[in-house]
Amino acid sequence: MLTASAILTDGLVYAAYLFIVAVGLTLIFGVMKILNVTHGSFYAFGAYGAATAVGIYTNGDWPAALGFLFMLGFAMAIGLVMGIILERGLLRLVYGKDEVVIVLVTYATFLILEDVIGLVWGTASYAAYQPMIAAGNIEIGDLVLSNYDIVLVVLAAVVAALAYWSLKFTRYGRLLTTVIYDRETAAAFGINVTLVYTVTFLIGAALGALGGAVMAPKISVTLGIGVEVIVLAFAVVAIGGMGSIEGALVGALIVGICRAAAVHLVPQIELFVIYGVMALVLVARPYGLFVRAQPRKI
């Protein structure tokens, strides 16, 4: 019973982490059909930005909650700046090229940004644990939960709800859905696709940075953290269906629960969980769980 509840809570926390990391990626893919490797850089810059922000606020004697919001805001601002530079300065030039070529453009950008991190922040690693330690923990029976993890789950739920609501009920969201469904028709109806692209990319970039920011207090912010996240996010998105927000949510939950179960019950297979689930889902449903096969155009 203890194990079952532990699997559930651990799975939820891990799923929250995966969802926050993957949601920006799936949004950008859904609208722009770009598999954005730079997402790893957004994550890394977000984490480094958060570490810097935590450094600023621990020096100035601010209340913890304010510091947490400052950290998230600071990191997302970095994401926005990066997003606008990349989209307007680079991606704009390659729209219309082969999907795979655009993947490589983002891969090249990712390589460049990896070294930019070293130039800006140096090679030393950064700590930003203050918000997580300040949050404290609660004991439920034998299990101790970190309050920060609970905040993480709530945050993921809020992001999911916001995304769902804005896609379904706002004007911009409906425009977006139109562009996702058929870009050419959308443009023919007078939708400013260029603007939709820019805004989407900015939101995606900010979400990537947000992922890094919320994880920063839990990890040591160090070189190479972006690489690990890319494939993880790819896997979640591929399982749920590329470009589907609810897919990313379900994908994150499946991977999260499976991984937690593996750690508790059969730790030997933990390494295979993500790719195993991904391969199985892709074999059964080539386009992921939440995307129906596209009708082929003649």
Binding site: T9, K218, V263, P267, E270, L271
Partner: peptide
């Protein structure tokens, strides 16, 4: 007792910590 091998650079160890807490 518990023999855990998380993947290299996993970053998130929530499930491992829970297992060890038990």
């Amino acid at each position: 007792d518990k023999i855990l091998f998380p993947k290299l650079f996993a970053g998130e160890f929530g499930a491992e910590v829970s297992t060890l807490l038990t």
